[in-house]
Design a protein around this nucleic acid. Sequence first.
DNA 1: AACAAAACGGGACATTTGTCCCACACCCTA
DNA 2: TAGGGTGTGGGACAAATGTCCCGTTTTGTT
Lengths: 201, 201
Amino acid sequence: MERYAAAGNTVARKSFLPGDRLIRQGDTISHVYIIIDGITKCYIAEDNGKDYIFEFLGKGEVTGDLEAIRKEKCLCNIEALTPVTVYAIPHSLFSSLVLSSPEFNSLLIHELATRIHQTCIRASYQQLYPVEYALLRLLSLDADQQLLIPKKDMAAYLGISVRSFNRTLKELREKNILDTEGLNIDLTKKQLEEILRRYEE
Amino acid sequence: MERYAAAGNTVARKSFLPGDRLIRQGDTISHVYIIIDGITKCYIAEDNGKDYIFEFLGKGEVTGDLEAIRKEKCLCNIEALTPVTVYAIPHSLFSSLVLSSPEFNSLLIHELATRIHQTCIRASYQQLYPVEYALLRLLSLDADQQLLIPKKDMAAYLGISVRSFNRTLKELREKNILDTEGLNIDLTKKQLEEILRRYEE
DNA sequence: AACAAAACGGGACATTTGTCCCACACCCTA
DNA sequence: TAGGGTGTGGGACAAATGTCCCGTTTTGTT
């Protein structure tokens, strides 16, 4: 990517500490970010004081692209949960890549389509299945990251209160689905699939 | 668009009656649709028998594009609520337009970005505000279309049962926010905004 | 080590939402 | 005109979730 630097559009590397915000909801930004390392949470803060977390972004994932495309204020906050390093790509460079590079263009379109796909699937099952189901799906995603994500954030991801989150954990432990301590699923993959299937009545 | 027909990729016009499905979840399709007229509902049917409606698509809106991009099975069902006519664009034509026409390419990217934006905003407020709030936002969207959308579909859009939907309507009527008969909001725009603001405490 | 701040866990109660059920109105079609 | 299907409206109760609150544990800082 260095060759683009000659145009005056340099790709910078930036670092953030846990709690820092890469992007603030409502701000106008001038860069698209690609995460080199670390975990961030992407969330909307509603006026009633509650947060809704869309996704946890990690290595290789992109953010700020919607704003570059729509030239609007930031839709959501991006906050570092762990130390994070990113590439910061100026909008001007991003735009010229979209126009001049068919590969980049195609990558972008696929990335957007995939995000719609995933957002739709999640919105659907979070509305139509009990919390327990959504929680199990979250916990089965990535055991490593869970240690790094505070419970209040997991609850915000599920759209529920921390109290409900704890309550559900307790119930799952009583059913011997979860580890007594920690958040590990105490089942094989097949057993888990069987349990998830059961919610379909 | 006629000039593209010469390539053997013809844009056909199709019609559907209420209840017909333009697209079936899980099917493999070969066309992208643009709605010329009519109203459709776009929904996922979960294995537990419940439906989640993402959006009601009307005149000028596009569907089937995700599947054309991702080359996967259909994410959701598209069903006609009123008589519907569409243009059916073969995937081959769609792809070549994306590659060869910068205008078309840009339109597509913006359309995808806007859909993500809207999906995120809706998922957030549906999770974080009471049903009453989401219901008011739905009703304030388009008074004309509401007459054509059955209540079970409005409930599915809000992710709640018909019982809850009716209950909430009743409460809004008792608060003199809704029309005694029908689903009309009995307020000026400013009054409505004031009411919505109140949910922010 | 000492303290403050934040995260965690859960009891008690209120509120919201779903489920089950029945009744009525409307629209078809035989 | 009778009967079935579907949409509508709501009562009664059960289940899920939120709010408020308090005590404990962990973490980070001086």
